[in-house]
Structure formats: C-alpha cells, structure tokens
Design a protein around this nucleic acid. Structure first.
Lengths: 236, 236
DNA sequence: CGTACGACCTGCCGTAACGTCCGATTCAAG
DNA sequence: CTTGAATCGGACGTTACGGCAGGTCGTACG
C-alpha cells in the first residue's frame, strides 16, 4: 500500500494527475486512511500502468475508462487507435511536404504571398483536387508552366484590348482569343476533378486579392472575365 | 468590404473564430458600421489567409501574431515549425511501431499485461535504454530469449532452494548459482547504457507487480534477491 | 513544549482555440 | 409592419491537468 506521493514517484506521474483520475472516477484509490489520505494498492498500480500506457497511445481519458471497463472493447479500440495514429502520420507528412515546398520556393524573400495562396487553395480545393493540380503541373514540366505564364499575360492583354475596343462578342477575333484562353486553363485541369469550377469560384470571390498580385486592376480582370463569359454564351 | 459572415464563408472559417481573433487582437476588422457590425476589407482578408495558413502548420495564435508583426521572424519560425513537425512525425512513428508490436504480440488474448509492461518500461527506462534492450533481444534471437526464460526459472528455483536450506552465502554452491544468474541478466544489458541499474530499481520498487505475473510470491522473490545481494557482498 | 517542515487534503482559477447557447438588436425582404 | 436571417456581446463548456490558497496531520528538532 502506497501514499499518493509514492505512487506518483513510482510511475513518473504527478500527484495532481492522480487526484484528477480520482475526481473523474478513472482511478479510485483502494481506500483512505482515517485522516482522509488516499491509499493505493497493487491493483491500483496495475490499473494506473494500463492508463498511462493507453495515454501514451493518444487515447482520451474517457476512451480509456470505457476500454478498461469493457474487456472485449480493448482490442477494437487499440486497432482504432493505430488507424488514427497512421492517419495523423499521413497528415503530418503531407503538411511537412507542403511546408518544405513553401520554404524551397524560388521567391524566398516574401513568404506572405505564398502563405495566402496556400490558405486560398485550402479554402477552394479539396486535398484531392490540390494533388491533381500539382500532378498536372509536374507532368507539364516547369518550362511549360513558365511559357504558360507568358501566354497568360499576352492573352489578358489581348482580352483587355477587345474590351477597350468594344470588339463584338460574336466576332471571330474574340472567339479565337477566348478559345486560346480556355485551352490554356484546360491544360492545368484534369477532367472530372472539379478543379475548373473551383478555380472559377475562387476567381469570382477573390478577384480583389488575386488582382493584388497581378499587374492588372480588379476592374480590368472583372471586365475580361465578364467579356469571356459573353463570348462563350454567344458561341454557336 | 464584407460582413463577418461573408468573410467566414469565403475562407471556410467560422464567425466565432473571427470574433475570437478580434477579441485577442490578432485580426481587427478594418472598421465598424454605425450599428457596430464588423466590416472587413481586402487587407483583412489577406491577413486572414496568412493566419489560416500558418495555423494549418500547427502554429499557435500567439506565435502567428508575433511572426506577422515582425516580418524577419517569419522564415525562422517556419523553419522551426518544420523541425517541430519532423520531430512529431518521428515520435508518431515510434508510437505506431510500439502499438503495432503490442498488437502483433503472440499473446493476443490479454493486452492488459502488455500494457502494464510498456508503461513500466516507460517509467524506468529512457527511450535509448529501451532501444538498447530491444536491439539486444533481437541480436540474441527469439530462441535464445526462450531458452533464457527456461534458464531463468531453473535459477530461481535453485536460489529458492539455497534460501530454504540456509546455504551459506560464501559457499561455492551459492556463488555458482549467483554467477550464472548475473551472467544471464548481463546477456540482455549492453555495457554503459545503465539498463542494469534501471532494471534493479524497477525490480525493487515493483516486486509485487512483477511477482503477479510470475509463478512465485513477492516474498520468495524478495528473499532470493536479498540472498543474491549477500552472496555478491561476500565474494572475495 | 513549541514550532517548523513536509506531505496530504479540498476547492477554485487558468490554460488554447474556439463551440455553443443566450437574449437583445438590426438588416433585408415581403 | 412583420418576419426570418444575421449580428452583437457575454457567459459557460471543452481536455487533462498545473498551480495556488488555506487548512490538517505527523514528525523531527531546538
């Protein structure tokens, strides 16, 4: 039989934790001395060892309580906990990869924009969609991505010119530049992933933020998007 | 300019979280309408994106606040966070391996004893010491471990016989059996790791619990340990 | 014999990042 | 004008304890 201090020292826990376990009914001491001090016996020690062990595996005290009362539930819960640990490990790896990419970025003087982009992507694309996008970019190769950036600028200027000159939405000229525009975007979206509509939503709802890191104003971008919509609507 | 609800929806956060950020001064809205409703501007949105991004990397709101105020601290903090994530990943892997071993154990009908043992090991051996012990066991091979278990039982019985028959602690018979006992234990301890003294402490402080899963009583075990001590003390 | 000290007791507040619920306003629409 | 949705501030709940306050008990020391 041990006092609470002895038990805490023997199991590398704290007196406070043991009192907490007593409070919530997880580990009641075998008895009390006449003056009210807790007395722990060998059975309590064993139970405490089980508790501490399950806690290192990340179980909550409530889960531990139920698993210790229902003997058959133990194996199930341990397997569930293993699955949970594996899942968390996978998530952690993904996060680590993401953070590594961010730190390896070619523009290391300003992480703020990159941070905003990751959060924006998180808000608009599911993890699978993000994987699809990066896979697509990697398949295209970095030089293709760079040339796409250049083409993007050219197309934006061309569309802007159309808008400024009031080019008719059903003219072959307008149709040609919009077709090129759509083809450029399509190169980055795998079919059936929904990345196109997500991109569109992101573009619509964050045009101000997106324009903040592009050399055109919100109004200009909005104008060309609306113009492109009209052109598509007027296609045969 | 957006209301709190619009901002929450656009960034996949919650109204409550935004109010919380306002409360702690992490993200103050640009202004308020005359009636007191919060109004968020583009600058707020960008800041929120940074906040959410840093949060997915596991930073606390306090860390985020400091890193957003001090622009130079950002890179340092991101690297520190990457190191932290890597460390947690390693810990998670170790836990997963431990839990897998426990579930693969050859005695699957009773996890309770195994759980008690893992907690006991955690309490008495540092992680390095535990690694050293398992490495030693694996180097010896499973058949050697099994034969050691048998030899262990034989030696315990021999020591018990010595105690019961009041064999003199300086007799060659006693010295022989204690030498064999020490040699058996030494086979599992790598030199300089401190596992021997840790094992001894564990044995002394948990003799009741250890005896609970051995076919001898606490008193018998205590008696042979004390006898062995005497024999060692009487060695030339 | 008094007292100082250590170990124990109960009870209460604090933590991080919000979730949830409350009653009171205020907005937008019909 | 009324109704439903959105917003406001305030308060409490969550997890697994840490820490502190104020009181009790036993013992060792001067």
């Amino acid at each position: 039989m041990w006092t609470i201090g002895q038990l805490a020292q023997a199991t590398r826990t704290t007196v406070r934790a043991l009192r907490h376990y007593d409070e919530i009914g997880l580990l009641r001491p075998t008895g009390r001395t006449p003056n009210g001090h807790r007395r722990y016996g060998p059975e309590d020690l064993r139970r405490l060892y089980r508790i501490r062990s399950l806690r290192t595996f990340g179980m909550s005290l409530e889960e531990i309580a139920t698993s210790l009362e229902a003997p058959g539930a133990m194996e199930t819960l341990l397997h569930a906990q293993l699955a949970l640990l594996s899942q968390r490990a996978a998530e952690l790896d993904a996060l680590r990869a993401q953070l590594t990419r961010l730190l390896d970025h070619d523009d290391p003087d300003d992480y703020l924009k990159a941070l905003e982009m990751t959060a924006m992507l998180d808000a608009y694309f599911t993890p699978e969609q993000q994987d699809s996008l990066t896979a697509r970019r990697e398949a295209l190769g970095p030089e293709a991505v760079e040339s796409a950036k250049g083409e993007f600028r050219t197309l934006v200027e061309a569309l802007l010119a159309c808008v400024r000159n009031d080019v008719a939405p059903d003219s072959p000229e307008a149709r040609d530049v919009v077709a090129k525009w759509d083809a450029l975007g399509a190169g980055f979206h795998a079919a059936g992933t929904g990345t196109e509509t997500a991109t569109r939503r992101m573009w619509d709802e964050n045009s101000e933020e997106i324009s903040a890191r592009l050399p055109w104003s919100t109004e200009e971008l909005r104008a060309i998007v609306s113009f492109a919509d009209t052109v598509r609507a007027n296609r045969p």
